[in-house]
Structures are given as C-alpha cells and as structure tokens.
Design a protein around this nucleic acid. Structure first.
Lengths: 148, 148
DNA sequence: ATTAAATAGGATAATTATGTCCGAATTGAT
DNA sequence: ATCAATTCGGACATAATTATCCTATTTAAT
C-alpha cells in the first residue's frame, strides 16, 4: 500500500500525460505525409481531449516541430521529415525532462558534485534521455499489417 | 516555451517528490546503524516537510522497509541491512512505477502487442527499473571525506 | 498508574497538472 | 467583400499531488 493509496489514487510513467499526447499527435501526423490535418481530426484519431490537444499542438508549432496553417483548409503538418524528429525533440518542446545538476539538499559538501543518490537518479535520467534521443518518429509509425 | 509555461510553472524528474523524500530518509537511516531516529530528526536532516515525512515513513514501515517503534525513545530504523534494500524497493513501496502493459489507445490491433510508441516508452521504463533494482541503499551512503 | 514522547491516521488546505470554454485573429473559398 | 473554417491565446474549471493540522493510540520511563 503506497502513500497515494493512503491519500488518493495514482498512476505513473516516465513521461507526463502531456508528452504522451504530443507523441501520439506527432506520430499521427507522420503517418499522413504532407497533408495538413486539423485539430479535430487529430483529436479523434489519437483519442486526446480536443481542447487540450489544441494547446499541445500550438506548443509544438511554436517550437518548430510542426507548422500550423490557419483558416479554411488549415491544420497542422510536420515541419520536417519524421526521420529528422526524435522522441526527445517532442518531449522537450512540450514538457522537458530536467537533468539533475545540483543536489536539492544544497549541502555545502555537494556544491561541486552530486551526492550518490542524485548521481544515480541523474544517471537513470541520462539513460532515458539517450534512448529518446536515439529514437526517431519514423521508427514509431505503425507497420501496416499485410494479410498473406 | 512548453505547455506548462503557457499555463503555469513546472519541474520534472524520473521519480516523484514523494519517492525522493523516501529515498533521502532511508539513506539517512542507513547512515545511523541500528539506533532508532524519530520523525523530527529525520525531517531536519533530510529537509523533508515534517508532517509529510510522517506519512512517508508510515508507508515505508507498512511495507516492511523500516520498522517503527512508538512511545518514548521510539522512532524508525531499517528493517534489514542497507545492502539488502534496493532503490527499487523504496520507490515501489511509496509511489510505484507502473510498467506499460497495454496500449492506452486500446486499439483492436494492439490487443496482444504494444504499438511501437508504447513499446519504446516501456523499454525506457525497463532501463530505469533495472538501474533501480541493481542499486542498493548501501551504495548511496555518502562517503565521509577524510582530510590528509 | 501516570506521564511524556512518539507514531497512526483522518480531515483538510495549497499547489501543480490536466482539461474546458470562448472570443479574437487569420485565411481560403465563394 | 463576405463567409465559414480554422488556429491562437487568455481565462476558467477540475483533478491529482504535495503538504499541513489535529486528535487518538501506543509505549518507555519514572
């Protein structure tokens, strides 16, 4: 029984809900080459709440991951090829991972090196960061299953 | 500029604040062999909010990571040697990592396998989990600096 | 037995993250 | 020029997480 249960309910992942939404949207756009897709359509296909997705897409556009087009026939499309966008790029745009650069306890002895705990925690984050940097969106497009 | 900035302020790590507090407390107890330390003392030394720490310690005790002793001269101490407690044990007690076992989109095609995105995200979590399982609390005790 | 020190645990408050709504601005089509 | 489709962006609402407070219960010491 964890603290959350003591108090309420919970779920956890290595990325936030927001980052997950952003990735789903980007992958969907990557599957639709060139054509702009609008917020409503992306929301439907990715099952992300419509109005929240609008914010997320806005943010991705501001960060140059996608380009937006207002007005009739407007929508969003990738700013560059999916092989040139990493999972890391998407996450950093929307909800950046922060590496640990100093011990939160701010002990004098830890001024210029992390204590063993934060060294380890940051190492774990480094692993995750590396994995995300090395994965491009093009690798995450669902292979279409062929019958035969 | 990320979504959070659009809306508010933020910070992120691979573990929750609660899990970080639990680890600090456990490491502190590991540095004090055998003797019980009370909540007040642990809170001071680890800079964790007193009343919140009480919950966290309670939870660790319920999960058999530490043992609590009520009454005068009471307090908390490790239930077993620090080499026999992993970072993973502590985190799972307090704020468990959940591996991804099914695609949140719940597409029919993903019934028995994860889609590429969630496959990757879970792989990243597996790395983190492995790293935490392999690290024992005894490895995180601050080496005392000697002059000379 | 009494007392003081300490944990246990429920209720509640504050903060942060997630999600909604709506009007303004932009733009393609007619 | 007007209209309809669409993003933009601010304000607001809800939910989850983190933090505090208060009282009850347990227990060692005297």
């Amino acid at each position: 029984m964890d603290v959350k249960v003591l108090i309420k309910e919970a779920k956890d992942s290595v990325i936030s809900q927001t980052a997950e939404y952003a990735l789903r949207a980007i992958i969907y756009l990557a599957e639709q080459p060139d054509e702009s897709r609008n917020n409503r359509e992306v929301a439907q296909e990715t099952k992300v709440p419509l109005n929240y997705l609008a914010k997320v897409l806005q943010c991705l556009a501001r960060n140059g991951i996608i380009v937006s087009q207002r007005g009739a026939k407007g929508g969003f499309k990738l700013a560059r090829g999916p092989e040139a966008i990493s999972v890391y790029d998407v996450i950093q745009a929307v909800d950046p991972l922060h590496r640990i650069t100093s011990c939160p306890l701010e002990l004098e002895q830890h001024r210029d090196h992390l204590c063993p705990l934060h060294r380890r925690l940051d190492d774990a984050m480094a692993l995750v960061e590396k994995s995300f940097r090395e994965t491009s969106i093009s690798e995450l497009i669902e292979p279409v299953l062929q019958i035969g």
